[in-house]
Amino acid sequence: MNRRQELALGALGALLALGACEAVGRAGIVRRSYLPPASEVLARAVELAGDRTFLDDVAVTLRAWALGLGLACAIAIPLGLLLGSVPVVDDAVRAVIEFLRPLPSVALIPLVSLLLGTGTETEVTLITYASIWPILFNTVYGLGETDPLAKDTLRTFGFGRLSILLRVELPATAPFIVAGLRISAATALVLATATELLSGFGQGLGIFIAQAQLATDGTRDVLAGVVWAGVLGLVINGVLVWGERRAFPWRAGARGTRGATRAAWRSPGGSGARRGGSGGSGPTASAAGRRGGPDRAGAHGPGAAPPGGVTGRPREHGSGEAADGEAPT
C-alpha cells in the first residue's frame, strides 16, 4: 500500500469518525445540549478562530507553555549533562529522583496554588517542574549511548574532559535531548491546560473550557475548545518532528523513507532481513518519524547503525523506551 493510498484511507477514516459523531449527536441518543453533533462543534471551532478574546486566551496559554518549556530546558539539559558525566552524582541523585518521579504533577496544582496563587507564576512553575523530567532522563540516557570509541579517540589526542563533552557527547546526545523535548512539549501543554482548568478564572484556553463547562449550553464550546487543544498538540508535535528531522538528517535514515529501508533489508541472501522486527520496524520507525509521538520517542530503530556496525547492538523496541523518559505529568 503506497503513500497515497494510505493518505486516502486516512482521510476516509477521519471522515467516518466525524460522521459517526454527527450521527450520534443528531440521533438524539444523548440530549442535544449534552453532546452536539460534530458539525456544530467544528463550526464553532472555526468560528472561534476569528474570536479576538479566544485567540488572546490561546496566546496566554502558549506563552506560559513556552516559558515553562524554556525554563525546563535551561534546568534539565545542564543537569542531565552533569548527571550523565559523573556517575557518582548520578547514583546519588537517582534515589531522590525515583522518589519524586511517580508523583503526577497535576497533583501539585493545589499545593502550588496555595503558595503562589492562581496566576501565571503557578502555571509556569508547574509546567517547568513537569517538563524537566523527560528532558533530563533523555539527556542522561543519550549521554550513556555515546560512542565510547569517539570519546577514547579524542582523549588519546589529549582533549580535556570538558572538550570531550562539548565536542562529542553534546552533539551525540542532541537527538535524544530533542526527543525528550518533544515529550516535554506535550507534557507542558497538558499541565498548562490542567492548571487553567482548575483555576477557572483569568485567561487561557483551559479557562475558556472551564467557563464554558459552567455555562448552561456550553458543551459545544467545551468541545470546540478541546478540538483546539488537540490541534495545538498536533501542530506543536508536527513542528518539533519536522525540526528534528531537519536538524538530525542522519537519524532520518533510521526513521527512513520506507522504500529505502525495506529495500535494504530485502537484499538477496539478506538473512539480516529476517532479523525479526527490523523489517517491520523500518516502516514503523519512519511512520514514527512522521508523527513522532511520545510512544516512539527515542525509538531509534535498527536502521540507526549498519548491522554489526560500531554500535551494532540489536535495538529492540524495548530498549527504545529507556529513552522515553516517560514521566508524563
Binding site: A76, L79, V93, V96, L100, V112, L115, Y129, I132, W133
Partner: peptide, 15 residues
C-alpha cells in the same frame, strides 16, 4: 537538583 531548585524557589517566595 531540579526539584530541589523549584522547591527552593517556592520556599523563597513563600517566606
Amino acid at each position: 537538583m531540579a526539584a530541589g531548585a523549584t522547591v527552593l524557589a517556592l520556599v523563597l517566595v513563600a517566606c
